[in-house]
Amino acid sequence: MTHLLEIRNVSRRFGGVQAVGDVTAHVDEGELVGLIGPNGAGKTTLFNLISGFTPLSGGTVAFAGRTISGLKPNHVARLGISRTFQNLRVFPNMSVFDNVSVGAVGALPQGAFGALFGGLHRRGRDRSAEISRRTWEALEAVGLTHVAAELAANLPYGQRKYLEIARALAMRPRFLILDEPAAGLNDTETRDLAAFIKRLHGQGLTIMLVEHDMTLVMGICQRILVLASGRKIADGTPDAVRNDAAVLEAYLGVDE
């Protein structure tokens, strides 16, 4: 059986720095996988390599049996990989509804012709209605329907995090990548977020998440990948990873 996401011998150099070196990993359909590692381990770089933001220096990435390395981010996104960003990137001068609609229209494009004449024929109207439906559904999933008309910049930080997730969900992705979703959230908010991610996973979405918050990752992920200095040093269940000697060494340093 082929894996949903297959990363083979992937590497990336920035000048003299090996950000990611020879990483091989996979994610299966329906999994909830965590990606952890000390600062500078290459977690975000690996995400950027998967989503097409950063070109690979070596190796291949395949999604649903198709090689996606070398494709532009928007192409990768339309194939069903959706992501959020570490440093929270919403569209500040657009309403919450319009923010989320970008995810929907990205996956289900409306062209200039559709915008001009879409109201005149059935296909165009159906397309608009479907985009609107997906947008509302995503807003409902994160509980932001009541602020749909609000400007994104006016939302409090926690709600903007959910807005970013809603925008990713509006694309109806097959695979969702969350880059440090709990960063900047307090304990209660993090617990709520954990429950929310579990619920998404329960609905059949394949998720990969990068996180610093160990309790969050250990609590909800079925499998955990550990990166250190750009290399994969462990891959297993939370319990196995917790007791792995290489992982302890990477996080705590060697006692010499």
């Binding site: 928007n74 960003f85 990137r89 001068n93 657009m94 970008v102 995810g103 229209v105």
Partner: peptide
């Protein structure tokens, strides 16, 4: 004032992020 317009706006706001949302910037 359409979803097409929203896609254009997203480029104005953050074109890299728009790219990640499937918008052919």
């Amino acid at each position: 004032h359409s979803y097409y317009g929203n896609a254009l706006r997203s480029i104005r706001e953050d074109d890299q992020c728009a790219d990640a949302m499937g918008v052919s910037t």
